[in-house]
Amino acid sequence: MIINHPILGPRDAAEFTYLGDASLLNRPDWQAKDAAEQFYEYLYLRDNVAGVHRELWYHEQGDRSWLLVTRNTLTHEISKVELASDVARAGGNSK
């Protein structure tokens, strides 16, 4: 697979390390009343979709940026690549 890095252009997926579902960007509030339940779901449960999947890749053998890749898990087709930091900021995270 080729991942079209927003800064570096097309790069071989072998340069990256895979983390998993992009929902990992949305860390629950540790002060919430049901924080234990939320963290259990955050850490262990996955939608694991068959189809379009938003996921985190780390460019370990490159510029060490985190990317948010939108990829189809049935065909391996990549439709969108963003910097994870951009997505996190747009979602209201401070960093």
Partner: peptide, 18 residues
């Protein structure tokens, strides 16, 4: 292999990735 797809019919999210 496809557990998440079957259990999604029951709205159950699993601690599993395929």
């Amino acid at each position: 292999g496809s557990s998440s797809r079957i259990m999604a019919h029951a709205n159950i999210r699993l601690p599993i990735e395929s």
